[in-house]
């Protein structure tokens, strides 16, 4: 464990908690893409099956359980409890265009052709594009609530910190995982446009306006 991975995990946890609390407190999921949240729940489910097979550390197990729990709680709030506030008309990204290619790629490019490894690879590829429905929805509505932009900021920051963690681990431990690194670079690049807007419009403090 190094400081970059720890702050990355905490940034990820912060994003997940910010979103869950926002929906819970405002009792509304307006402006939130339920599709992205379903994809994240799928990412955690397929990646953390090793909860059943191996124990790494208390930290590792605890964080995985929190991530999975919060992901499903968020999906529940969006599609069940606060369903009336779900903005389905703007959450129209065709997720099958993400899941099918990612599923195929996981079969073709992986470290080991075993079920657990293919599911892990699928989850890594899926995570890199899981935010697209959310970014697409914001570009359609043309704006995002401030709290939603904080959620996206921490979510984008987490994988950027993981990239530094992988540089650190390669240099000090000789460890690297090309699949995770390439997917992580793609994932972080997708946030670049948002990061620019978040920083440049941060001063205004008003609703962020994304280019349509």
């Amino acid at each position: 464990m190094n400081i970059f991975r720890l702050t990355g995990d905490l940034s990820h946890l912060a994003a997940i908690i910010i979103l869950l609390l926002k929906i819970w407190k405002t009792r509304s999921c307006a402006g939130i893409s339920g599709k992205s949240q379903v994809l994240f729940a799928l990412v955690f489910t397929t990646r953390y099956l090793d909860l059943l097979t191996s124990f790494i550390s208390l930290y590792n197990t605890t964080m995985k359980i929190i991530y999975i729990g919060c992901a499903y709680a968020t999906v529940y709030l969006i599609y069940m409890k606060f369903k009336a506030t779900y903005d389905g008309n703007h959450d129209t990204f065709r997720v099958e265009f993400l899941v099918v290619p990612v599923g195929g790629l996981a079969f073709l490019v992986n470290h080991d052709f075993s079920p657990l490894e293919i599911l892990w690879t699928f989850s890594i590829y899926l995570e890199s594009v899981a935010i697209l429905p959310q970014l697409f929805m914001i570009s359609k509505t043309g704006e995002a609530e401030t709290i939603t932009t904080h959620y996206l900021f921490f979510l984008g920051l987490y994988r950027a910190l993981y990239l530094i963690n992988w540089i650190w681990r390669f240099y000090f431990e000789g460890f690297f995982d090309m699949i995770a690194i390439v997917a992580g670079v793609v994932q972080t690049i997708l946030y670049c446009d948002f990061f620019y807007l978040y920083v440049t419009k941060g001063e205004s403090g008003s609703n962020k306006i994304n280019p349509a």
């Binding site: 995990d9 090793d50 790494i56 590792n60 470290h111 460890f175």
Partner: peptide, 10 residues
């Protein structure tokens, strides 16, 4: 080395 056997990252 390539990816570690044990996946210790979240």
């Amino acid at each position: 080395t390539t990816a570690k056997e044990v996946k210790d990252e979240l």
